[in-house]
């Protein structure tokens, strides 16, 4: 089984940058996710408030968490690609 194809240009520096970015994104999502749980436990009535076209906050927040996960994933991928492309360019210039 081949295992190193994926890391062709993945330097330690880029790995660290990607890991840091991942941690930041994780904590951002965790905060939004924890917000939903906190509202449920501490101020349940808030979830019943209609926020958009007759739909309550609970449903909108739920859909929002799903959409946010996808959007953050796309953004994370774009930034990681940029880091990796930057490394490739530098390597190319050095050559």
């Amino acid at each position: 089984m081949e295992q190193n194809v994926f890391s062709e240009h993945d330097t330690t520096h880029v790995s660290e940058k990607k890991a840091k970015l991942g941690i930041k994104f994780f904590f951002f999502y965790l905060t939004v996710y924890a917000g939903f749980v906190a509202i449920g436990v501490l101020n349940y009535e808030l979830l019943a408030i209609e926020v958009f076209k007759g739909i309550n906050l609970a449903v909108i927040y739920g859909f929002g968490l799903i959409v946010l996960a996808v959007l953050l994933g796309v953004l994370y991928n774009a930034l990681c690609n940029r880091y990796e492309a930057g490394t490739n360019e530098k390597e190319g210039n050095a050559l």
């Binding site: 999502y29 939903f36 739920g62 953050l72 994370y76």
Partner: peptide, 18 residues
Amino acid sequence: AIGFLAGWVVALFLIAEP
């Protein structure tokens, strides 16, 4: 559904590559 999907965020941002 919300929790099952949120779990993928942990997998993608923290676990997958390292």
